[in-house]
Every structure is written in C-alpha cells, then in structure tokens.
C-alpha cells in the first residue's frame, strides 16, 4: 500500500453495509460512514438499533449480507487476518473463560496474535499493570468484581497494540471511580493516536471523550457529524443556580429566559440562547440574587440524541 495513502486513508470505511439475519431481521440497512484516523468516534443508538451488529461485522464476529468494509485501506474480505492484527475489540458481554486466571487470559490473547511467549508475558504484565489488575493476575476471572472484569476485557483488547480500538459499552456496570479510570485510559490512548470507536448509553461519556458522533436508528445512520457541529444545533439549555438563601428576593420575568425557584437555595433557569446567559446572570445579580454556583442541568448530547432518534 502506498505510504501517503496509508497515512491519509480513513481508519474505517463502511460502504452500503447491510445485514439481514436468518430470522429475517434487517439489523443494518445499507449504511455508509467513515472514521478518520486518530478520531474518537461515538456510534450511538437504542438497544437493537444495529450498533453491535456493525461492530460484529468489523471485528469478524458477524457475517455481513452485503456491502464493503475497509480498515486502514485494507478490504475485510481480502485481508481479514491483516485487519485483525490492527484491531482491538471490547465486546458488550464478558467473553473469557470463567475458570481461567486473569494473567493467563491476557497472556493467551497475546499468544493468539502470534506474540512469542516471553513477549506475550511482558505485554500481559504491562497491560494489566496499566489497568491496575496485575495484583489479581493469579486469581481466576470469575472471582473478579464487575468493574475488574470490564478492565480485563479492556486489557485483552490492548495486547496487540491496536491502531483501531472498538469498544462496545466498555464502562457498562462500572462504578464512577472505575468509569473515570477507563475514561482516563481512553483519553491517553486517543492522545497517542489510536483511533477509537465507542458505543455507549452514557452520553456524558460521549461529550467528554468523543470528537465525532454517528447515530444509528432502526439499522440506518440518521446522523453523522462532529460533536461540535451537533452541539451547535442545541439552542435551549437549562442551568441550575445555587444562591445564598434569602426570603425577600423578587420574582424574575423575562421574555429571553424563564426562572423557577426550586427551593430556598436553588434556581432553575431555562435559556433559549447560550449567548444570553451572561446578561441573565447580570440581571439576577442586580435584583439581589447572590449566585454561588452554576451547573448545566441537562446532558446536551442526551437532549440532541433524543430529539434525533424520536424524530
């Protein structure tokens, strides 16, 4: 492959991909999209929308009905083994032997990619240490907690140093602490140039990590744009203001925003244009409201996601 093309070609290119299961269910219907190299790409959709089927096809777990898949310029039908070497995948369900030791699972996964035993051993140690699981290397996997099992799945997907990492709900079931650790790791991987495709139901995760979003609904891509572009479409936002308690504050009336007092210390302000927020806060200050804190009440991506999928 030409060197320049290898540097500029998309990490993933899907053209007219369709999957019809034997049961007759059309899981994905003629979808096309590209993921640029180095991108952190979110693939969103409701349960059964076709996300996992799409990922299954890319990672050779599902046979496609028609269409074309290329990874870093290599066609999946012709270069399956080559493509597998470049991909790391974290499927939705745990897929390791429950009676195997944590260290063995990662070491064997490295071996299945052809890494010699010593290299596999070193790689397994490095990956488990990175995911703070090395101290459980000699424990059988079924003794791990849910969050640890998630991290083990992630460790397995990293042993071949993938250029394209595909994560199907990687933080599902993980507690807040573990989720932040996973986010931190994914951020590091993205910063080091790894292309990441993520499906998740935590839209906060998307807003925090991703730079591009595609939404799949009933097997079709209904949105495919940058996160920035998507968020710029959002006009109305709601903020929660924490104020100093006071009984004698006047009511606020404006045609540009609405204010509702939720309790002694909390106001909810709904604003039609984010550019007007500064003026609104100034007006509130002039009327005697002492604002201590301000937070965005709604997850913006969540709001957009619902409006797109419902329409």
């Amino acid at each position: 492959m030409d060197n320049n093309f290898a540097k500029t070609c998309p990490a993933l290119k899907i053209e007219n991909l369709t999957k019809v299961y034997k049961s007759g269910i059309r899981a994905i219907d003629n979808i096309s999209f590209e993921v640029a190299q180095g991108s952190f790409f979110a693939l969103l959709g409701q349960n059964g929308a076709g996300k996992s089927t799409t990922i299954g096809i890319i990672t050779s777990l599902v046979n496609k009905t028609s269409g074309k898949v290329s990874v870093f310029g290599y066609d999946l039908d012709q270069h399956r083994t080559k493509i597998k070497q470049m991909i790391g995948v974290v499927p939705q369900e745990f897929n390791f032997g429950t009676f195997e030791k944590t260290g063995d699972i990662v070491r064997n996964q490295a071996g299945f990619f052809g890494l010699p035993p010593r290299v596999a051993e070193a790689k397994a140690k490095e990956t488990l240490q990175r995911l703070k699981l090395w101290y459980r290397a000699e424990h059988v996997s079924r003794s791990l907690s849910g969050g640890m099992k998630r991290r083990l799945m992630l460790a397995k997907s990293l042993v071949n140093s993938p250029k394209l990492l595909i994560l199907d709900e990687p933080s599902a079931g993980a507690d807040v602490e573990i989720r932040y650790q996973i986010w931190e790791l994914l951020g590091e991987l993205s910063a080091s140039g790894t292309t990441i495709i993520l499906t998740t139901h935590y839209l906060e995760e998307v807003e925090k990590l991703c730079d591009h979003v595609a939404i799949i609904n009933a097997g079709k891509i209904v949105e495919n744009t940058s996160l920035q572009n998507l968020l710029s479409r959002l006009n109305e936002q709601t903020f929660l203001l924490t104020i100093e308690p006071s009984d004698v504050l006047p009511t606020v009336d404006s045609d540009k925003y609405t204010v509702q007092r939720l309790n002694e210390q909390t106001l909810e302000i709904n604003i039609s244009d984010i550019g007007l927020l500064g003026g609104a806060l100034q007006e509130l200050g002039q009327k005697g409201y002492k604002i201590k804190n301000i937070t965005n009440k709604t997850n913006r991506v969540e709001q957009l996601y619902l409006s797109i999928t419902r329409s």
């Binding site: 050779s60 777990l61 083994t81 897929n95 699972i105 996964q109 299945f112 071949n160």
Partner: peptide
C-alpha cells in the same frame, strides 16, 4: 470470540 477477533 477471543480466537475469532485475533489473527490466528
């Protein structure tokens, strides 16, 4: 799936 996604 460990084998199916690997290059073996």
């Amino acid at each position: 799936e460990e084998l199916m996604v690997a290059s073996i």
